[in-house]
Structure formats: C-alpha cells, structure tokens
C-alpha cells in the first residue's frame, strides 16, 4: 500500500510540474504589451525619437498614436519611403520637414509594433495634448565636441579612416561613408555622405544614439556584436563636428587620389603584363602557311 501511494505521488508530482510549465508559458505569451514595448522602443526607436522631450533626429512621438491612424503608422514604420512615394500628404510633409531624409524601414512583426504603440500611448498623458507648442523646439546640443581638443579630433579621424581599428573590431566608417575633409581620402559611397552629419542628425546626442544602437539595417548588421565604445563615439563625434564646422574652408581637390592613382596603377599593370608575357605565341602556327598559300593562288 505504501509503495503504491509513493508511486502515485511520484506520477502526480510529474503532472503537476508539467501543468505549472504550461501555466507559465501561457502567462508569458499573454503579456505582449507596454513593458515589452519599452524595451523594443529603446532598441529600435530611441536613436532618433523621444517621447515628450522634443524633436530629435526624427519627430517627438508623444501622442502620435492618436494623431495618426494605426494603419498609417504600420505602413510608415514598415516602409516610409514607399508611403512617401505613394504621395500620402502627411508622409510627404514629414519627409520635407526633416530635410528629405526618410526614416529607415523597420519591418517588425505586428505584435511588436502594437506593443511599441501601447508604450508610446502610456507615456503620452491625455489625448491630443501633445501639440507642437508644448514640445520644445529642439534639444539644446550638449555638444562636448565644441570644446574637443585637437588630440581627440585626431583620434576620431584615425578611427574614421581606419588608421586605428575599433576596439571591438567593427568596420571603419570610411568603408561605407565619405567626408569632405582635407587629409582624408575619399571614402565609400555605399552609405550617406557624413560631411554635415553632426548638424543633420542632432549633434552629439543624435550621433551617440545612432552609434550606440544603429537603426539602419545595413549598419545594424555591420556592428552586430561589435559595438563602438563610449570613448570612440565621443572622438568620432568630435571629429565629425570639426568636419561639419570646417566644410566651408575645405578645398575640394580636383586631384582625386583614388581616381588618378587607379589610372596610373592600371597603366603600370598593363606595362608589367606586357613585359611579363613579351615572349608568347601571338599568331596561329599556320599563319605563314596560310599567307604563302593565298599568295600562290
């Protein structure tokens, strides 16, 4: 009898455990809401958007859920560029207001988007209260860069050009970006020109946010697992501020070193190839025979 009951207990406890697991699972899957939204917002949106603290790289999102329909927001977030292209009036207006810079596509699942919207709504006190007037025009740039030392700018420049590698092994900026700055060779054209990025993207704060968690898909991939450190960001910001400030003073060199270097190099290569293969079979071995036959006809 004792043995039987023990066995009964054993099986019963097993069942209990599995029931508990199922409960936990249900509970976790049910709570896709505001607190998830907060995390996703921080990761995906906060680089460019603030809630109630004013305009940043992109617009302040306070009350956006009441201002726009949910359907419109879905479309915008998934692909703002196609919404703009479709001629949507509101979309075009925002696009023009923000220097014709479209928001990078963020193809998130609907459930995650909904949780972000829930989070934004929870942070927006009262409906439609967030009018343009209550929002501060722009964040005053804290701009440590204004007082950056020449050494810091040099560090930033070296990081940008790849003379010094990023500590975590991320790709140097110049692989994809270009800046118009004396002493920096023309960079890649794969992504935006960064000459005026400091003013365009909201000063130090904006750059810091973007470099901390890059919101652009290609950049996200490139720096995935290879984050840029605080000091590196500060140095880069200082350098980019300097670049932005000095734009007007730059002499745009007519001698593109890459282009002319490339042409000269190619020419040199052709000469080398010619010399390397100077002894070679240039004609068919039957050329003499053909020529003599044609002549004899």
């Amino acid at each position: 009898m004792r043995i039987i009951s023990k066995r009964f207990l054993k099986t019963n406890s097993g069942k209990m455990a599995s029931l508990l697991l199922v409960c936990c699972f249900l509970a976790s899957s049910a709570s896709v809401s505001a607190q998830d939204g907060a995390a996703i917002f921080k990761q995906k949106c906060s680089a460019c958007h603030k809630i109630g603290e004013g305009k940043f790289v992109g617009p302040d999102l306070m009350g956006v859920t009441t201002k726009r329909s949910e359907e419109w927001l879905f479309k915008w977030v998934n692909s703002s560029s196609s919404l703009i292209a479709s001629g949507d009036k509101d979309a075009v207006a925002i696009y023009n207001e923000y220097n014709k810079m479209a928001m990078p596509d963020q193809p998130l699942p609907d459930t995650e988007l909904k949780s972000i919207f829930a989070f934004i709504a929870s942070k927006s006190p009262g409906a439609v209260s967030a009018s343009a007037d209550t929002v501060k025009k722009s964040l005053p740039a804290p701009d440590a860069s204004l007082t950056a030392t020449a050494e810091q700018i040099e560090v930033g420049k070296n990081l940008f050009t790849g003379s010094n590698a990023f500590i975590n092994g991320g790709a140097s900026c110049i692989s994809c970006h270009n800046v118009n700055y004396n002493g920096v060779i023309p960079g890649g054209l794969l992504a935006k020109d960064l000459t005026s990025v400091h003013s365009r993207m909201g000063g130090d704060a904006g750059l810091m946010a973007i470099l901390n968690a890059p919101p652009f898909p290609a950049m996200t991939q490139a720096y995935n697992g290879k984050p840029i450190t605080e000091q590196e960001i500060a140095a880069l910001a200082a350098f980019l501020y300097k670049v932005d400030k000095d734009t007007a003073n730059q002499i745009v060199s007519a001698m593109d070193p890459l282009l002319y270097g490339g042409v000269t190099g190619a020419f040199g290569l052709f000469v080398l190839i010619y010399l390397l293969w100077i002894v070679r079979k240039k004609n068919t071995v039957k050329k003499d025979i053909y020529e003599r036959q044609v002549k004899s006809i």
Binding site: L276, W277, R280, K281, K282, T284, V285, K286
Partner: peptide, 15 residues
C-alpha cells in the same frame, strides 16, 4: 598561376 586566365602557349582552333 601566371598563365591561368590566359595561356599564350595553348593551341588555338586554327592550330
């Protein structure tokens, strides 16, 4: 390796 992409010693169709 030197001649891998263009081998000048290779017979051509006319040979």
């Amino acid at each position: 390796l030197k001649n891998i992409f263009h081998n000048p010693h290779m017979p051509v169709l006319d040979d």
